[in-house]
């Protein structure tokens, strides 16, 4: 994963639990990186280790950590790093959701080594959609939930996310119903 993700984990921890907690987490994860470079690609295991260590050090289940991270990603990282792109992504949740696949295509053009998940939106209603999540990385559903909730926050909507279907395939295909 790109350094931006790891930086985001660092930002989340430092902001909420302080430098010391972050250092402990790095130590626990056996990560000896002083500074993550946003545009540099890091091994996925590093990110997983950091999340695992965060769960241990902060004494929280992985779901909670990942969901918080998803929210943080939208409200802080994406807003700060791709703020205007996000703004350009749509003026309401529906619009944004509809642009999401293209959004990722664009991002992957910028970060050539990125293996981003793929999103599809179906069953578009006025107040709900089905979000299809295709990813090579396992165990990040809660992250997706966090992302959706973060978007809800961004557009001032109270969002609920429920996993309605997991299709066993590679990459993973999971369908969430996002309602607001």
């Amino acid at each position: 994963m790109y350094g931006l993700v790891n930086k985001a984990i660092e930002g989340l921890v430092v902001e909420n639990y302080g430098e010391e907690a972050w250092e402990r987490i790095k130590k626990e994860a056996e990560v000896d990186v002083d500074l993550f470079v946003s545009n540099e690609s890091y091994d996925d295991s590093l990110t997983y280790n950091l999340v695992g260590a965060a769960c241990k050090i902060l004494d929280a289940p992985a779901e909670t950590v990942l969901e918080s991270f998803g929210k943080y990603w939208i409200t802080r990282v994406a807003t700060e790093s791709y703020g205007h792109m996000m703004d350009a992504g749509g003026s309401n949740l529906t619009e944004f959701m509809q642009n999401l696949p293209n959004f990722h295509t664009r991002v992957s053009m910028i970060f050539p080594n990125l293996r981003p998940p793929r999103f599809e939106v179906t069953d578009i209603e006025q107040k709900s959609i089905h979000l299809h999540y295709h990813s090579h990385r396992p165990g990040l559903q809660s992250f997706v939930v966090g992302l959706m909730k973060g978007l809800g926050e961004r557009f001032g909507d109270d969002v609920t996310v429920s996993l309605i279907e997991t299709r066993s395939s590679d990459p993973i295909h999971e369908i969430f119903k996002v309602s607001w």
Partner: peptide, 17 residues
């Protein structure tokens, strides 16, 4: 254009880094 802008943005991020 949008993607180029994003590329610029990502370069700025790199510069920030």
């Amino acid at each position: 254009v949008i993607d180029l802008l994003q590329l610029l943005q990502s370069q700025r991020m790199a510069f920030q880094d």
